[in-house]
Design a binder for these strands. Structure first.
Lengths: 133, 133
DNA sequence: TTTCTGTTATATTAGTAGTATAACAGACAA
DNA sequence: TTGTCTGTTATACTACTAATATAACAGAAA
């Protein structure tokens, strides 16, 4: 796979792993119906513990990204896009709130914030790394 | 002050406190040059430990939001807006990246993401709570 | 029946969040 | 000069999370 984990940094590796799988789905590297490695295989591949991978898979399943079958393994959810329901929108707004408050204090207009978001959007879809311009 | 801390929730209270002070600056309730309560006074006011407040103040100082003087106390940084330098922009983009990847999987266009950000922007500036529409 | 799969249980180590006390040191007012 | 504010530092303790290590259980398929 396309995984790069920073074992030293502040961000927990299970969060990094989860985010990278979601980004893989977002940019189309992982497509609906695709198989994911077994918890043991992926853990061995990237040199972490089985339980760390399992925690990620459980969270991804609960949030609708993947399906898990008892002895057939794990796959990207075949239904394609997830529903952007009110719960999702409310949570996203709550997450954005402190980021946008920070941006305001840094003299960012809503338009500048939108422009920067647009850049990130395209970075993801064009499969660029996040190393900046 | 205008502080509402959720002692039970997942988010650490020092993070909540920090975010709410920044939002207070963003919406103009806390203005450049304004005094903030002493670490002991604020801790006693909201019923938490002195060190928890001190940690928040130290972080806010390092990020340029406030000034701390040894025995005169703490004030909002008198210089007004902070510089939105390249480091800030790079960090913001790195923070947004997983949020936007999620949004893409939820079939959000860049425009919808921008529109939702705009809503949050106005919620903050018009001093609305985050209880949603 | 062997060998995959996810699942569950238990234990340990390391780090962070938060609290509790105490003491130190600079500044300012009575 | 003496209190009494201020932030600062040190130490210790509890609770929780992240991550690991082993082991065993249970369903399904070759």
């Amino acid at each position: 796979m396309f995984l790069e984990l920073d074992m030293a940094g502040d961000k927990p590796i299970y969060v990094q792993l989860k985010e990278q799988i979601i980004e893989g789905i977002a940019r189309g590297s992982l497509r609906p119906g695709d198989d994911l490695p077994s918890v043991r295989a992926l853990a061995a591949d990237i040199g972490i513990n089985l339980h760390t991978v399992n925690k990620v898979y459980q969270q991804l399943r609960q949030e609708g990204y993947i399906q898990i079958h008892r002895s057939r393994g794990v796959m990207i959810h075949p239904d394609g896009f997830l529903k952007a329901d009110k719960t999702y929108r409310t949570n996203l707004k709550a997450t954005l709130r402190p980021l946008i408050a920070e941006a305001i204090v840094h003299d960012f207009s809503a338009e500048e914030f939108a422009r920067l978001s647009q850049e990130v959007y395209e970075q993801i879809l064009t499969k660029e790394g996040g190393e900046d311009e």
